[in-house]
């Protein structure tokens, strides 16, 4: 059993955090990474907030992860990975929205359809990758992302996608919230619940595809689920919760970028770890409250 060598940090930290920050931002590629990171954090976590509220993590994960076959296919035919992410994320969203699911069964039909769609599309991803041959490092970037190669043009595209998605959520805010919290009541009041569900899946596709460019297909899901789940532990007020989610996502992404700059370990690891630490911390107030309630309960019974 050979233990991997403990890798030394690529860049040393100085004693002064301000100097470090200035160092960090002295490289254009880092500035672009911070800009693009903010855009995808807002994009993914805004949609992710609804995903967590609607308990659609599995569907969200599926739509996110099938960006990989799209990007692999686009690379195979010589197009940009960007277009591939969009095509397949949308394709999965449409497939899951369109295939009729029979309700009233003992098991969840949507689950079965989603799992099959995911596996089939990922199978195509492997086919494209193996037809492409050779360059396996390229596949790694599609799966796990590339934070440091973001061009100015891509930052603009990501910002536009971010604005479009947030605007769509702002427009759909009230009916989507209603349909997510109480679908039966919303349907009774004439809210187009099914249509909103389908529109939301398309938004998920848009957000996942945009974020995949940077995070890779496998790690988008972390940005979708983690900040939103953390905040929903802390507050149940919708508007406040959404704002907190956006802020948390940006903080987590920037912290991950900064830490990974000074560490030899990949950014995906840092972002997920920081976000998971936040998620665990968010359970503390609830646990404390539960504990004190139990104690009070015990004191009341002699």
């Amino acid at each position: 059993m050979s233990v991997p060598p403990i890798l030394v940090p690529v860049v040393g930290l100085s004693a002064n955090p301000l100097t470090d920050l200035r160092n960090l931002l002295s490289y254009p590629f880092m500035v672009n990474a911070f800009r693009a990171g903010a855009a995808i954090a807002v994009l993914a976590s805004a949609v992710g907030w609804f995903m967590v509220l609607r308990r659609q993590s599995f569907v969200g994960h599926t739509i996110a992860v099938v960006g990989f076959p799209g990007a692999a296919g686009a690379t195979l035919v010589g197009l940009s990975a960007f277009g591939g992410y969009f095509t397949f994320c949308f394709l999965a969203a449409v497939l899951i929205a369109v295939v009729p699911t029979t309700t009233g069964r003992a098991f969840s039909d949507e689950n079965a359809v989603t799992g099959t769609v995911q596996a089939l599309l990922l199978g195509f991803g492997f086919l494209f990758a193996s037809l492409y041959g050779g360059n396996l490092n390229g596949i790694d970037a599609l799966l796990f992302g590339n934070f440091l190669g973001i061009s100015n043009g891509e930052v603009v595209i990501l910002a536009v996608i971010c604005v479009v998605t947030v605007a769509a959520i702002a427009v759909l805010w009230e009916p989507l919230l209603f349909a997510s919290i109480d679908p039966a009541m919303a349907a009774a009041r004439g809210v187009p619940v099914r249509g909103l569900g389908a529109a939301f899946l398309l938004l998920l596709g848009l957000a996942a595809a945009g974020a995949s460019q940077m995070t890779g297909a496998l790690l988008v899901f972390a940005l979708l689920v983690m900040p939103a789940a953390t905040v929903q532990q802390l507050t149940s007020r919708p508007a406040l919760g959404l704002w907190m989610t956006l802020a948390l996502a940006v903080v987590v992404t920037w912290a991950g970028l900064a830490v990974s700059y000074y560490s030899p370990y990949p950014i995906g690891f840092w972002i997920t770890t920081i976000a998971f630490a936040g998620y665990l911390t968010s359970h503390l107030p609830g646990l404390v409250r539960q504990r004190s309630r139990r104690r009070r309960h015990r004191q009341q019974r002699p």
Binding site: R55, D140, L219, F221, A222, V225, M226, T272, T273, Y279
Partner: peptide, 20 residues
Amino acid sequence: DVVIGNVFAWILGLGVLFLG
């Protein structure tokens, strides 16, 4: 499923670390 999602997103992050 939110608990599952958070746990496995982090475990996947660990996987990226080990891959690195």
